[in-house]
């Protein structure tokens, strides 16, 4: 597969390490009353869609960017690639 890196252009997927669902960015609040439940949900309850899937890839053999890749799990078509850092900032993650 080829992942079109937002900064570097098309790169072979072999240069990347796969992590999983991009929802891993949305780490729960540790001080919430039901923090254990929330973390359990966050870590273990993943969707496994036959179709579009937003997932985390790490450009280990490249610029060390974490990317959010939108990939169709049936066809491998990739319809979006973003820097995970931008996604995280946009979703309100900070310090």
């Amino acid at each position: 597969m080829i992942i079109n890196h937002p900064l570097l252009g098309p790169r072979d997927a072999q240069e990347f390490t796969y992590l999983g669902d991009a929802n891993l960015i949305n780490r729960p609040d540790w001080q919430a009353e039901d923090a254990v439940d929330q973390f359990h949900e966050y870590l273990y309850q993943r969707d496994n869609p036959a179709g579009k899937h937003r997932e985390l890839w790490y450009h280990e053999a490249g610029d060390r960017s974490w990317l959010v890749v939108t990939r169709d799990t049936l066809t491998h078509e990739i319809t979006g690639v973003e820097l995970a850092r931008d996604v995280a900032l946009k979703s309100g993650r900070g310090k």
Partner: peptide, 19 residues
């Protein structure tokens, strides 16, 4: 060494990008 570095980058870029 490699997996910890990857983990730290994940924490830095995805979990606490404001640090």
């Amino acid at each position: 060494a490699v997996s910890v570095y990857r983990h730290l980058e994940f924490a830095r870029q995805c979990l606490w990008p404001g640090l």
